[in-house]
Design a protein around this nucleic acid. Structure first.
Lengths: 183, 183
DNA sequence: TTCCTCTTGTAGCACTTGCTACATTTCCGT
DNA sequence: ACGGAAATGTAGCAAGTGCTACAAGAGGAA
């Protein structure tokens, strides 16, 4: 049991790296195994089935995402206004470093929409985490941190989606028109 | 050429119906052919390759989407405020009728993010169409129809995404806190 | 040592994938 | 009716899919 858990903990990061670059939908056992330095035989042995592998991979991805947010919390100073906070988040998400994770994210959303096993839980978890982070990092003295965080989250995700399909300028213009970005 | 075009026009709706219910990622030639009443052999004959089939299917889906929006334009009366318009759109999108199309939409977004051939064009086109529809249907006398439409689009898509992962309540609370929904 | 469980390698099975070779039918212009 | 092109059926190929049967090494407990 303990060595099984150990093996999985070793495998999951390698598997996730492969999934981040090659996509979740196209991931099949043999390429995954190769990326993790094992065989398909071993993946089935450790995870039971591909479905459970994917499911565990998603919860692992969610935990990595949460950890990344926590890391940001401790290092950043709080932006003084909602607009500054929003601008900062969008700027960070637009960077190339977060591209692979965003690609994975859309596959997770798609899986959640179709209710594939494990997808909705992972997606819900990540959004819950991000919402919590937002709420904790709202500008000091914000009149409605809870509502404001939810509002920002909605706007952020809309911007992400529009950016994914090449409409970042549309989203930007919308946020400006809504008075949500610093001029 | 003309009979080829005819065949394609007959096939595409049947193919799209199959894709709407079964998903785009899992769509392989033989099930697609079965749904359209032909053989994989014929699909390759008419479309050249699976990649081109998917590409044509996406532009077809985009045109269907556009036509659907146009139909709504002529039948609806204009809501008096932005909040009413937003509420009406969200209500319509939350209905079960638009569920299959939304499922397909997330796959398109994922494909666009990964830059698969044809995906980004289709996604861009549909968003362009929706944006145009919004702009044309902004409340009469709105001070900034162009910017307002872009703002609404961003908020709408964010709400769609959060709803897809089971966070519709979060989005709703956010819109209320942002003063974007009628009380 | 012996035994037992955990872990791993080798082959392979039944099936699906996109696509093609080849032959045949269908249909339209002459 | 005839000839050529378009359209379709049959069969199959090479590769890849998830997964399993079987055997064998590894490592610790007795």
């Amino acid at each position: 049991m303990s060595s099984q858990r150990l093996s999985r903990d070793v495998l999951l990061p390698l598997l996730m790296e492969h999934v981040l670059t090659h996509g979740l939908g196209q991931a099949s056992l043999r390429p995954l195994a190769k990326a993790a330095g094992t065989s398909d035989r071993m993946l089935i042995y450790h995870f039971g089935s591909k479905e459970r592998l994917i499911s565990e991979l998603l919860t692992f991805a969610a935990s990595v995402y949460a950890a990344g947010l926590e890391a940001v919390i401790t290092t950043d100073a709080h932006p003084p206004t909602r607009a500054d906070l929003l601008a900062r988040i969008l700027e960070q998400n637009a960077g190339p470093a977060s591209q692979p994770f965003k690609n994975l994210w859309w596959e997770i959303v798609g899986g959640a929409a179709r209710d594939l096993p494990g997808y909705r839980e992972a997606a819900r978890g990540m959004m819950h985490e991000l919402l919590g982070w937002l709420e904790r990092n709202m500008p000091p003295g914000d009149p409605d941190p809870a509502g404001g965080a939810r509002f920002l989250l909605t706007v952020i995700e809309g911007t992400m989606m529009l950016s994914a399909v090449g409409h970042e300028d549309t989203a930007h213009a919308g946020l400006l028109a809504g008075g949500l970005l610093p001029s």
